[in-house]
């Protein structure tokens, strides 16, 4: 295998790893993918170190020639949650390792996966709303509360999406989401007496709770990636605190306007 091919393979491997890490895969899965891809094409030495914010790979071709060592560092800045892409790349790496797929073809497959569109924002907002509505029903809400939670959650999902697109950070996005949920719930609950403020807010903030960060924090910690595990745990805590902050800020303002008497 020529030198160019090895470099191409490494670029391909790091591209696959980047897609996985950017879309919410666990650290050990990303490392495993890199190692499998590189080992399947005759690298005797592969070492990869992946954290939540960067990928480091070092490969050696045969150990005799000193010039053969290649190292590649990739910084990951922006992360979203797209489990579909994680599953696709996972599937792809399995196919690549088991077959003799040419690297150019593999690169094309990865590009196709990377440009796959997520579910449209309309669909996401509607289903996010439905999820919140059904969750409030699980808490024992009535029909009006269901619709209030549905509407609030659609609003929250949509605006969080827009804020994320505009590159606002995690903290601001979730404060805004929590604040919006509280505001909308206050407005809707003052429209009709049977709409309970608590149930609407709890339903609506369920679309923001850090389920992925929490699960991945546990998975990373079990796998021994303590740096990533702690980082993800901190992310989960930060999200929870900022949601509470956003909701609390608006509620406190409303209580202040009402003259300090809690009406519920």
């Amino acid at each position: 295998m020529s030198k160019v091919n090895q470099k191409k393979l490494l670029v391909m491997a790091i591209y696959a790893a980047e897609i996985m890490l950017k879309n919410g895969a666990e650290t050990y899965r990303v490392e495993d993918t890199i190692n499998r891809i590189c080992r399947s094409r005759d690298f005797p030495y592969v070492e990869s170190y992946v954290t939540l914010t960067g990928i480091f790979i070092s490969v050696d071709t045969d150990g005799e020639d000193l010039n053969d060592m290649i190292t590649y560092v990739k910084r990951i800045n922006k992360r979203v949650i797209n489990l579909n892409k994680v599953a696709e790349v996972n599937d792809f790496s399995r196919r690549f390792v088991e077959s003799r797929m040419p690297i150019d073809e593999a690169m094309a497959v990865l590009k196709a996966i990377d440009t796959t569109l997520p579910y449209s924002i309309t669909l996401q907002a509607v289903f996010g709303g439905l999820a919140s509505g059904c969750f409030s029903l699980l808490l024992g809400a009535n029909v009006l509360e269901f619709f209030a939670a549905l509407f609030t959650s659609i609003l929250v999902t949509y605006s969080i999406h827009k804020l994320k697109q505009a590159d606002f950070n995690l903290f601001i996005t979730n404060i805004a989401g929590g604040g919006l949920a509280a505001f909308s719930a206050i407005v809707l609950s003052s429209l009709h007496a049977s709409v309970n403020l608590d149930k609407v807010i709890i339903g609506a903030i369920m679309v923001m709770v850090p389920g992925v960060a929490m699960t991945n924090a546990i998975r990373d910690s079990i796998a021994g990636d303590l740096v990533s595990g702690l980082a993800r745990g901190a992310e989960a805590l930060l999200i929870a605190i900022s949601i509470a902050f956003g909701v609390g800020f608006i509620l406190q303002g409303w209580i202040f306007l009402k003259g300090g008497i809690l009406p519920w």
Binding site: N23, N82, N84, F127, G128, G129, A131, C134, M206
Partner: peptide
């Protein structure tokens, strides 16, 4: 049924296949 729908809703938010 409610939990089923709610979970599918969350799944769509996370772009599950």
């Amino acid at each position: 049924i409610f939990a089923y729908v709610a979970t599918i809703g969350f799944a769509i938010l996370f772009n599950t296949p």
